[in-house]
């Protein structure tokens, strides 16, 4: 009960910071539009090429765009936390009886919320261009992308609390994000990779998320890989939230 109340409270604080910052709101809407406007024109000729998978250009590329948005949209969250560390905000919050899990979860939920919103905007804009997706598919895909955001944000906060400086945070997060993204099949399908690379990619949770998202966009909601992707992300997110909350509570008991 206290956990829910505290989480809601913390979410409210960071949501308020977000909503009261017009730059953030504008960029938040602009980002998915940019993704589409700058990327979609490339799709048409490619989709016409021989051997291009069925399902239309948008149905093939939008899942990848969304996964990227989920990950990079949340990869930078640690910067704001480091600024707060410096202002003493984090210590001030930690001295109060507020739940340590809420301190992490409330903020990560805000990040998740903004990513889901951006993803929805991207999907809605793509619809008139020929993206076709079942309404239930939208819900499932938003859940997937939201979980990627929650997972990435939680890890980002845990790293930020551990390293405490932007100079260490940026290289750590972006260097580790790169191989994860490359080996997820977002850019090119992993099925064309040599076996050794596929073996490495098999331990990449994002691979399963991309796989699940692709199936959703192919109207294969019932495919086992969809459930598999969701379950993997849920489990990892829970682990990441717990680890992040530990970092927030790394004081007495």
């Amino acid at each position: 009960m206290k956990l829910i109340r505290d989480t809601w409270l913390v979410f409210g604080r960071y949501f308020g910071l977000f909503i009261h910052n017009p730059v953030w709101v504008a960029l938040g809407v602009l980002q998915p539009v940019l993704y589409l406007v700058l990327f979609a024109p490339l799709l048409r000729p490619i989709a016409a090429m021989r051997g291009f998978p069925p399902g239309g250009a948008y149905n093939v590329f939008v899942p990848g765009l969304l996964v990227q948005l989920g990950m990079f949209g949340a990869a930078g969250v640690g910067f704001s936390l480091i600024a707060e560390l410096r202002m003493g905000v984090i210590e001030r919050l930690r001295v109060t009886p507020v739940s340590r899990v809420a301190l992490l979860f409330g903020r990560a939920l805000r990040d998740m919320f903004s990513i889901v919103l951006q993803s929805l905007i991207l999907i809605l804009i793509a619809l008139p261009f020929g993206l076709s997706i079942h309404p239930l598919g939208i819900v499932v895909v938003l859940a997937l992308i939201g979980l990627i955001g929650l997972l990435t944000a939680s890890i980002g906060y845990a790293v930020a609390l551990a390293v405490k400086s932007e100079d260490s945070y940026a290289p750590i997060v972006f260097t580790s994000a790169l191989p994860i993204l490359l080996l997820s099949g977002v850019l090119l399908p992993m099925s064309i990779a040599p076996q050794w690379l596929q073996n490495i990619a098999a331990i990449n949770p994002l691979l399963y998320a991309v796989d699940a998202a692709r199936h959703v966009f192919n109207d294969n909601l019932g495919d086992p890989s969809v459930l598999k992707g969701v379950v993997i992300l849920v489990v990892l997110s829970v682990v990441a939230v717990v680890i992040g909350a530990r970092q927030f509570g790394r004081a007495v008991a």
């Binding site: 910071l17 003493g88 001295v95 109060t96 009886p97 007495v252």
Partner: peptide, 24 residues
């Protein structure tokens, strides 16, 4: 301090060297 940190938090106030209010 070792066993009841939660109770202590309810009873004390702490103003750190850096303050603790967000500039924004």
């Amino acid at each position: 301090l070792a066993t009841q940190p939660g109770k202590i938090r309810e009873r004390i106030g702490y103003v750190g060297q850096a303050g603790g209010a967000d500039r924004e």
